[in-house]
Nucleic acid binder design. Sequence first.
DNA 1: CGAACCTTTGACACAAATCAAGTCACGTGG
DNA 2: CCACGTGACTTGATTTGTGTCAAAGGTTCG
Lengths: 235, 235
Amino acid sequence: MTRPPLNRLDESLLTPLPPFSRLERSEIRAILDQAVSRRVEEGATVFHEGAPADRFFLLLDGTIRVIRVTATGEHVTALHIPAGQLFGIAPALGKDHYPATAQAASEALMLSWPARLWPRFAALDGFTTETYATVGKRLGEINDRIVEMATLAVEQRVANALARLVNQTGRKVEGGIEIGFPLTRQDLSEMTGTTLHTVSRLLSAWEKDGIVSSRRKHVTVTDPHRLVVLGQRRG
Amino acid sequence: MTRPPLNRLDESLLTPLPPFSRLERSEIRAILDQAVSRRVEEGATVFHEGAPADRFFLLLDGTIRVIRVTATGEHVTALHIPAGQLFGIAPALGKDHYPATAQAASEALMLSWPARLWPRFAALDGFTTETYATVGKRLGEINDRIVEMATLAVEQRVANALARLVNQTGRKVEGGIEIGFPLTRQDLSEMTGTTLHTVSRLLSAWEKDGIVSSRRKHVTVTDPHRLVVLGQRRG
DNA sequence: CGAACCTTTGACACAAATCAAGTCACGTGG
DNA sequence: CCACGTGACTTGATTTGTGTCAAAGGTTCG
């Protein structure tokens, strides 16, 4: 499952990514040589909530879903992480256990390093600045979700969740923009704090109105503008 | 309103606080000499969401409420900050504008420094580590709130919010533990995403059951254990 | 071909928002 | 010091958005 790099990883993997972009070629080389690369399939778990945070990760391709499971077994999706970002960076926040579970929303490709190397990374020029900017963005996102949950009705929350996914992972297809990974009604309900039944009803209604179009596990937004409008207060 | 320190601030103000505890006496002296102290009264705003983040703060006494206001004018309370913590640390997260509004829940006393000094603080031994541990804790807290909002009913959310306030700011009084600052039903509703009416009904019911006791703007929890039980799933 | 799963739809129940008065405490100013 | 006004709180009646319960249809894959 985890394997050392068989052939050297190419430096161009990291150069375009913000936390690494200011580094010297030699520094990037050193970082890559210490990385372990890993491929996980759709739905597989990368690490579990509460497990010792022994590694941190960089997502090269795919999407990671960050979820938490309650005492009664309900799943709540806290966040989606797009390709190009660090995740599992518990060490950066003074935690020695992962605060949530990370699973692959679609097949994913990632690099990882042992947590004990974090301080060395942190010492690199511009690395911390960029990292904490990412943390700041996530904090902002998650805050927006609280405001949303506190003030909006289910329909608006689902509309906004879909709109966010379109922006983060959407890819143009004929007739609209498709979410970039397999997505069930249940998944959407776990992102918005509702039930798969309600999501199903909403998507059915929206499909009738020509706003979305969906097949099993695939959702395409055909009228993004109207979707955004649905997300506003007052329908 | 903002005023320079008239008499030198005492070093013992900072020594016990985690981000400063590892610093030399001389370093603390230098930090204090650059600080501006400020007292704000109950309800006053320290800084507004969206304003340029030109200063960062340390709360010496009182409680700060972090709120966001929606386009339609609703208020949502994201977080309460207890005495002894840094706040408004937008510079630490790469932001040059405050992402939320901070207001004093009770009369509050704070120090502040210009944002441009942040890098110098960050270079001090152990300072960043402790700061980001705080950020991590807040991220965790806010995450818990999302899980709560997604899975719990109103009664349980309000019970948990009260329980949290008891832990953070409660002080023993005869007959129970009182929340450490003035708190209205409206305030509680803004923390839990419900209406003041529902909160009022809940508190009335709990008062009848001997779990809380309240007078105008003051809430005392008389049976903390049963309150915690109310916060669990299944009442 | 069957099993596992995702999805849809209807009927019903209920928690909580909304609508609507009205009482009660407190601080202010005359 | 009392009257007045404002803001906090309470409580009932009504409405409604969503969850829950229930059943069945559709897809995919082994």
